[in-house]
């Protein structure tokens, strides 16, 4: 039994069958990559996992509980964090405030009216945010407005915000899309470090084969809304079906 079990999931948009009969099992403490050509249904699948879309058929179980029909914030509170394709951070707020918000969410839950708190009340959250910033090597940028960070730093901050909630499953949607090579390599190193040091499962959607093969323990190939193969990276590399679907080569 994996931590995330997707069974027979199907999703239709009008005449387009975006997903059909998707089965996927993500084992705990692995890095599981989902790859596939454009329009294969990768993002639709991800949106079904986090509550943005509700699949027409099938079930999605996280740690033995169904996530279907729950709001995104409830799914997040269950232990699934999501990193977006373009970094989604609180651009008007400072880096420190960005980091404090998930720390408050972790401590206080989905809603807490603490409009008149004492300083001591916040100490533990402040320390936690400070610690996380240091871990992400962003401590000296704490007073910067986060919208003015570089793309790579925004990504770092977003990943840090997700990690500060100590999620059990981290979903990454093309984390290196549109990044320069150096930023991409930094992100790969960061993710490797996270996967090695933390008790966390990572599911990653990615186009860049360099990123996929340097991170993943397990790869699922999606094509036309349905899984083609699921295997170890070494076997995927040589699989003729994958080459055909993904690279458009005829075997």
């Amino acid at each position: 039994m994996g931590i995330l079990e997707v069974k027979n999931v199907g999703k239709r948009f009008g005449g387009l069958q975006a997903l059909s009969d998707v089965n996927l099992s993500v084992k705990e403490n692995t890095v599981h990559a989902i790859i596939g050509p454009n329009g294969a249904g990768k993002s639709t699948l991800l949106n079904c996992l986090v509550g943005k879309l509700i699949p027409d058929t099938g079930s999605v179980m996280f740690d033995g509980q169904s996530v279907l029909g729950r709001a995104p914030y409830e799914i997040n509170q269950m232990g699934i964090s999501r990193v977006f394709q373009t970094p989604e951070i609180f651009g008007d707020l400072t880096v420190m405030e960005n980091m404090m918000i998930p720390c408050f969410a972790k401590r206080d839950g989905a809603f807490m009216l603490n409009a008149m708190p004492m300083v001591t009340n916040q100490k533990e959250v402040l320390e936690r945010a400070e610690h996380m910033l240091e871990e992400m090597n962003m401590a000296e940028k704490r007073h910067m407005q986060s919208a003015s960070l570089s793309r790579g730093d925004k990504r770092r901050l977003e990943i840090g915000m997700c990690l500060s909630q100590e999620p059990r499953l981290l979903l990454l949607d093309e984390p290196t899309a549109g990044m320069a090579r150096a930023d991409t390599n930094n992100t790969i190193d960061l993710l490797k470090e996270i996967a090695a040091e933390r008790d966390i499962t990572i599911a990653i959607i990615e186009h860049d084969m360099h990123v996929v093969f340097s991170l993943a323990n397990r790869i699922t190939v999606l094509a036309q809304g349905t899984p083609l193969v699921e295997d170890d990276p070494e076997n995927i590399r040589g699989n003729p079906k994958v080459r055909e679907a993904y690279l458009g080569e005829t075997a």
């Binding site: 914030y73 977006f84 609180f90 918000i101 998930p102 969410a105 839950g109 009216l113």
Partner: peptide, 28 residues
């Protein structure tokens, strides 16, 4: 002033800044 400077005020500014991130950070 207290509301502006409190965690609650910070959450309200977060609503203005990015509701999507807020929802995916476990906040309603």
């Amino acid at each position: 002033i207290r509301i502006f400077r409190s965690p609650f005020g910070m959450m309200l500014r977060a609503v203005k800044s990015n509701q999507q991130r807020m929802n995916y950070t476990g906040l309603n």
